[in-house]
Structure formats: structure tokens, C-alpha cells
């Protein structure tokens, strides 16, 4: 019936938005948990850190891996944000329209979308700063180095905001992914949706509690630890030959 070829771009962009979102979200669920290793002990956090630096694979640390990881995440981050830009109300008029709509409707899922836009917007700045630091100072990660950054370099307040936004954004995003693509629908879609929504709220709560606890611990260490020795952590169990 048709002669022309269909334009596949919209489908691909939509998929890419979701796919990048999914990767970022999965990354963050891991990230916050790894980081929370500080809650167990300084030693634990150190082990996690060097694990990422490849110590357990190569027998020595390569902070460049972190740089590389941060760069990769940054790329995904940029792609994701870039595509997301298309969804963000392009003009003030449209912003007003959608804002009035959501206020008038008092409708949860529409409001959730607004949360996505706002948190996304916030992360655009804060996330970039954080990623840049991680890329440029990959070796300054560890129980003491991180704590020092949180307290002495005043990253604490930024992390606090970033935490709140990223956790909300990630789990709302995952819930919305499930709705958008009809993931694990089951027979009664109303029931599965209610379940996903509950899960989303539960996860947000858990992750915020865990994240805030770690942040508190970093702050505590940052305030109480004596940094006269430098920010490097000296492990009792693992001896680094190369350093």
C-alpha cells in the first residue's frame, strides 16, 4: 500500500531514552549501596573502592578505571539528558500549561512526571559537577578522602540534594519504564501497576535512608578524623606495594 520508507528515528530515540535511563538507574542502585559500605566499616568501604580500581583482578590499583567508568557514565548521562530535553516543556507557555494541568487534575502519575523533570533538571548541574570530580580525581576515593570531600570541600549539601533527586528520579523512572513498555504486566494491569507503584515508593524510602546514613557517616568521619596524615586510608589487611 505504501511506497515511502517509514522514519524509524522516533522509535529509536524513545528506546534510547529508556535504555539509558535504565542503565543509569541500575548504576545508581548499585552505587549507593557500594558507597554505603562505609556504614559497615571503613575497611569495607576501602575494599569496595579498590575492587573498582581493579585490585582484585590485577593485583594492583588502576584509578584510571574509575575515570573510565565515570566517563562512560557521563556519556550515557549526556545522551539521556539530551533526549530528555525533548520531553521537557520547551517554552514557558507550555510549562505553564502543564503545570496548571497537573495542579488542576491532582493526579499522582502526572505529578510524578513533573518530579522527573525537576529532579532531572537539578541533576543536570549537580550530577555534572560530581561526575567531573570523579573523572578528574579518581584516586581520591576512600573512607577518608571521600569524607574530607564531603566536609572540607563542602560537597555535603550538594550530595544531600543530589541524593534526594537521584533516588526519586531513578525509582520513579523505573516505575515509569515498567508502565511505558508494559513490563511484567500480568493479567490484571491495574493490580500490577499498584504493585509497581508500591515497590517504587518503598525503594525510594529505603534508598534515601541508606544514602542519608552513609552521608551522615562520611560527615561524622570528616568532622572527627584527623587529616594531618593526608586523606589516604591505610588498610590494616591489604598492603599496597606500589604506593
Amino acid at each position: 500500500m505504501r511506497k515511502e520508507k517509514i522514519d524509524k528515528t522516533p522509535a529509536r530515540l524513545d528506546f534510547l531514552q529508556s535504555f539509558t535511563g535504565l542503565i543509569l538507574a541500575l548504576f545508581i542502585t548499585g552505587h549507593i549501596m557500594f558507597e554505603a559500605s562505609i556504614l559497615i566499616s571503613n575497611e569495607m568501604m576501602y575494599k569496595v573502592t579498590i575492587m573498582f580500581e581493579g585490585y582484585y583482578f590485577f593485583g594492583e590499583k588502576y584509578p584510571g578505571i574509575i575515570s573510565f567508568l565515570a566517563a562512560a557514565i557521563s556519556v550515557i548521562f549526556v545522551i539521556h539528558a539530551g533526549i530528555a530535553m525533548k520531553k521537557i516543556p520547551s517554552s514557558y507557555r507550555n510549562y505553564k500549561v502543564i503545570k496548571n494541568h497537573i495542579q488542576g487534575m491532582k493526579h499522582e502519575d502526572s505529578s510524578l512526571w513533573m518530579v522527573q523533570v525537576i529532579t532531572g533538571f537539578m541533576m543536570f548541574f549537580m550530577g555534572s559537577v560530581h561526575l567531573y570530580i570523579m573523572m578528574s580525581q579518581p584516586s581520591d576515593i576512600g573512607p577518608f578522602a571521600s569524607s574530607s570531600r564531603v566536609v572540607d570541600e563542602f560537597m555535603g549539601p550538594l550530595y544531600f540534594m543530589l541524593l534526594i533527586s537521584v533516588v526519586s528520579h531513578a525509582f520513579i523512572g523505573l516505575y515509569r519504564l515498567a508502565m511505558k513498555w508494559g513490563f511484567m504486566e500480568g493479567k490484571n494491569t491495574k493490580v500490577s501497576r499498584a504493585r509497581f507503584k508500591f515497590l517504587m515508593k518503598a525503594m525510594i524510602a529505603i534508598y534515601i535512608v541508606v544514602g542519608l546514613s552513609s552521608l551522615a557517616k562520611y560527615t561524622y568521619i570528616g568532622m572527627t578524623h584527623d587529616f594531618s596524615d593526608g586523606v589516604k586510608y591505610k588498610s590494616q589487611t591489604i598492603k599496597m606495594e606500589n604506593h
Partner: peptide, 25 residues
């Protein structure tokens, strides 16, 4: 008897299914 391409032509764009932002209103 329309093909999937025919349907794509109709709603495979920003005014169709890819415009929907899953607001679920």
C-alpha cells in the same frame, strides 16, 4: 489488512505513541 508499517506511519511519531509521556491520566 493494514501492515505494521502502515500503522507505524500513522502513530510512530511524536504526535503518536512516541509523544505519549506515560502520564497515565
Amino acid at each position: 489488512k493494514r501492515s505494521d508499517d502502515d500503522y507505524y506511519e500513522l502513530v510512530g511519531n511524536e504526535d503518536g505513541v512516541f509523544g505519549c509521556m506515560t502520564l497515565l491520566g
